[in-house]
Design a binder for these strands. Structure first.
Lengths: 336, 336
DNA sequence: TTGAATTATGTTAACGCTCACATATGGAGA
DNA sequence: TCTCCATATGTGAGCGTTAACATAATTCAA
């Protein structure tokens, strides 16, 4: 019958239960010193009014929000978005909620704007999934003294927390299996040069090249898309001497490589072996199934949150690397 | 030199600028009646103190937060996470920030918990990307009078806003091209039966079957993974009479189908044609490239936000469908 | 029975902002 | 010069919660 214009407050509950608002607050926060009788009365009143606590008021009063801000760059890629979802899941399990922003472009001003907003909003901490150096720097700059974890493979000052899946290890694993199969000429199709994952993977490739092999002409930059993988492979195949193996910077480009080889009538792995990176959905059913590097996004999410809690608690900064796992499928074999 | 224990408030700025707190508030909110001189003084003070507005206090005072809550179910799938990112991008462009939660399981209690939290947090509206009927119902229940948009293909009461990519149209497009090529026997590998997209696609498939064709034995339920697509295709190929085409419920399962056909030595599209759904990255480089249905996630994000703004403004509820687009590639052709 | 310790509850004042209203300026028109 | 209105600024209260302190009720040992 009654017009419920505005939602009930703690005072309404207190009134109905015949206690003070502070007692209601105590019930709400599970304070030990509340008699069971009072607890019952208050719970009753809460239920009958459909009372819901106002978190803005709580945040204002306590200075803490149980919310973390998560910034993700390059959201169109599967990796960053997988990281976001893993982080969110872990955060919620730990009683934290996530405020998020995804950036497609690589604009430091946008990074600053997002981080500033998180701070204004009163988040307890920030996790930034940064794919480029620009993004890392803008984050470091803007985050100030706010507890922050950088999920990046880029360089971070020793007094900052950072974590990432070990891109170098992953690329090493890819190169190790190829070298173990006695491949003498291993080409690499990398991601964009400004992408930190791309450059770490490419650097590992270069370092792991079989002794005496000249990297010139064996490295082509792609943009993570299957089309660019296809195009890069076609370019490699136009050379006089063909590589015996191609290490694609990610699985999607690997798909492009497989198709290029198919179109050119070159068998895999008989003619050329192919290795990808990421272990995306469907990589087990390409033709042939793609040998690749599996990334543990879930582990990354857990580690990020673990580090953030340390940062919030004021512990000393540290960095972590999440191990990768080589998945051997049919696209790799001994060269002819 | 000075110990900056707590961050500066509007009062500190007012003091330094020699004006009242209300004047600072006016500057902060671009109120017209502020002299340029005062504006300058205040801006100066804000900059020199490094003042940042406290949004919790603002939310408490105004009752509005410029934050929307986005709930996403089945986050391990590419569709829902693409929708989330598109929604977030559109929201931020419109001056809204996103609080999010992703659910992997299909537990109505979790849905309720998340929606309740959004409400407690003081969001201005909620967008729920719900893949199952359970999730839709829990959302309807929990959201109450909060402006809410359901991104779902499920049934929603007429007084609620909803939108989704038109799954029925997409499946129709897939069937239309196959029937246009004179396929007489079209099998379908669906997603999980409790998935609304899966069931709409399957229903369209059933309705569009060539006249007189018996659907029995032509429908197999998968779980969206390439492995399940592979297994389902193998089952279909074990039948006495083979279908002339296979409509896979999504591209990932389509990859499995392609590999199964390859393993059985059946040419595509010569022996059997294959159509997928989603147009995921890499679908253009499968062997052969996969004919599929493209989903406009960006358009979905824009539409969701558009509807949510209407809901917040108190407009009458309505529903929308985002059109799909048929992408014809090499995996479809006339049957032998 | 008494007094201290313990438990249960109430009172008041923040938290940092905006709203509604009150007041002070500065011209323009008479 | 005075009134009137628009522009510019200040004052006080309130948003809904928790923190800090004060008080009342209970328990327990001496």
């Amino acid at each position: 019958m009654e017009e419920t214009r505005t939602s009930p407050t703690i005072a309404d509950v207190a009134h109905l239960a015949g206690v003070s608002h502070q007692t209601v607050s105590r019930v709400l926060n599970n304070h030990p010193s509340v008699s069971t009788k009072t607890h019952h009365k208050v719970s009753q009143a809460i239920a009958s009014l459909g009372y819901r606590r106002n978190l803005a008021a709580r945040t204002l009063a306590t200075g803490t929000s149980r919310v973390i801000g998560v910034l993700v760059t390059r959201t169109h890629l599967s990796g960053p978005s997988a990281a976001l979802l893993a982080i969110e899941q872990t955060a919620r399990l730990g009683g934290y909620w996530v405020s998020m922003a995804g950036l497609q472009r690589n604009d430091p001003k946008e990074v600053t704007e997002v981080i500033s907003h998180f701070i204004d909003q009163g988040v307890d901490g920030i996790i930034a999934v940064a794919q480029t150096e620009t993004a890392v720097e803008a984050t470091l700059q803007a985050s100030g003294s706010m507890p922050t974890v950088l999920v990046t493979s880029g360089a971070v000052p020793p007094d900052r927390f950072s974590v990432d899946i070990d891109q170098g290890e992953g690329a090493d694993q890819a190169m190790t299996i190829l070298k173990g199969l006695r491949h003498s000429s291993i080409a690499h199709i990398s991601g964009p040069h400004d992408d930190l994952h791309a450059s770490v993977r490419a650097e590992s490739w270069r370092r792991a090249l079989p002794a005496g092999q000249d990297p010139n002409g064996l490295l082509i930059e792609g943009d993570w898309t299957s089309q660019s993988g296809y195009g890069a492979a076609m370019t490699l195949l136009a050379n006089k001497t063909l590589p015996t193996a191609i290490f694609a910077g990610n699985d999607t480009m690997g798909f492009g490589v497989l198709r290029a080889l198919h179109d050119r009538g070159i068998g895999v792995p008989g003619g050329i072996s192919v290795v990808g990176f990421d272990d995306i959905a469907g990589a087990d059913c390409s033709i042939p199934p793609l040998t690749t590097i599996h990334q543990d996004h879930h582990g990354l999410g857990q580690a990020s949150m673990e580090l953030l809690l340390e940062a919030i608690a004021g512990h000393e900064a540290r960095s972590m690397k999440i191990p990768t796992q080589l998945i051997v499928r049919a696209s790799t074999g001994v060269p002819a």
